[in-house]
């Protein structure tokens, strides 16, 4: 063997070692995650009952979803509701998170306690949170209405989950209650990274805390805000458990809390009244559209965060 061949074979052997290290992870990830995700694209071009839709129909499922009044109404209702659900998280959850983080970034007694408490609900199951709040919001015996009545505010003792215009915002706020710890902790980490000297210098120059927040902290937090925004987007465009627990698989009352994920579940998995048989092709079409929405959001974010980083 020449020396060149020897080096080649050693290199080759090294390559094979790396491939073996990667193989189990790649196989699991391909077979049980990436594969099914991409196969959903293909499945969305088929129709047929049960688990093996075999009739190729091209874009018919999508056409139905966008133009057939029966589907269109359901789809756009779920889409709009999902946008509202996301918007409430974006505005309320992340604003509260920023406020809490800003308060937690200074030194005072009990700071760790507050941080631990704010984050605690994030460790609960979403389902448990949802069920717990349906009991607390129960119009007859729930603690929320009891508290309102005790304060003499009987007009606020409403059937929170029973009204079409209330259910979705109330459920969104329940979810905010659970997840606000996430942006809080991320913003806190970002704030801790801002140099103390910079803030001290601004204070010595007589800047108010309000101005320091908006003129110094906020601009420096922009990358963190980007990460928080994209995570809020991905998590909430796909939310299911909290709706299932508080409004059922149909997003009741009368579909006012129906999200893309509950529509996907009813269409592709559970099967919807009156047929009762899952329509996998249509379910896959809904999943594919959700996928496309998420992808465009993520690419949009990547583009902007890159652009900002290079500026």
């Amino acid at each position: 063997m020449t020396r060149a061949q020897e080096i080649f074979s050693v290199k080759n052997r090294q390559k094979i070692t790396w491939v073996l290290f990667l193989l189990p992870a790649v196989i699991m990830y391909l077979v049980f995650m990436a594969g099914p995700l991409f196969d959903s694209l293909r499945l969305s071009l088929y129709q047929g009952e049960g688990y093996n839709p075999t009739t190729f129909v091209g874009m018919q499922n999508y056409r139905d979803l966008f133009t057939n009044p029966l589907w269109r109404e359901k789809f756009f209702n779920a889409f709009t509701n999902t946008c509202i659900f996301f918007a409430i998280h974006m505005l309320v959850q992340n604003t509260l998170g920023l406020l809490f983080a800003n308060l937690l970034s200074s030194e005072f007694r009990g700071r760790n306690f507050f941080r631990t408490v704010i984050f605690a609900p994030a460790t609960l199951s979403v389902l448990v949170t949802g069920f717990l709040w349906t009991l607390i919001l129960n119009p007859n015996w729930g603690a929320v209405n009891k508290a309102f009545i005790a304060m003499g505010l009987r007009e606020f003792a409403l059937p929170w989950l029973g009204r079409e215009n209330l259910a979705l915002p109330v459920i969104s706020l329940t979810s905010v209650w659970q997840w606000v710890g996430m942006p809080t902790v991320m913003f806190l980490a970002g704030l801790m990274g801002i140099s103390d000297e910079l803030l001290e210098a601004a204070r010595i120059d007589g800047a108010s805390e309000w101005n320091i927040f908006w003129k110094i902290k906020f601009p420096l937090l922009k990358p963190v805000i980007g990460v928080v925004a994209i995570l809020t987007f991905v998590d909430n465009f796909n939310a299911f458990d909290v709706i299932y627990a508080m409004a059922g698989a149909k997003g009741e009352p009368s579909y006012s809390a129906d999200l893309l994920a509950t529509l996907f579940y009813r269409t592709g998995i559970a099967g919807e009244h009156p047929v009762g048989i899952p329509n996998m092709g249509m379910g896959a079409a809904i999943a594919t559209i959700t996928f496309a929405i998420l992808m465009s959001g993520v690419l949009f974010w990547l583009y902007f965060s890159r652009k900002q980083a290079t500026e």
Partner: peptide, 21 residues
Amino acid sequence: IFFIAGLMIPIRLGTLDLVRL
């Protein structure tokens, strides 16, 4: 990059194929 992309794409969207699998 292939692995990291999975951070942003929820596996639930592939549920129908997983049920078949």
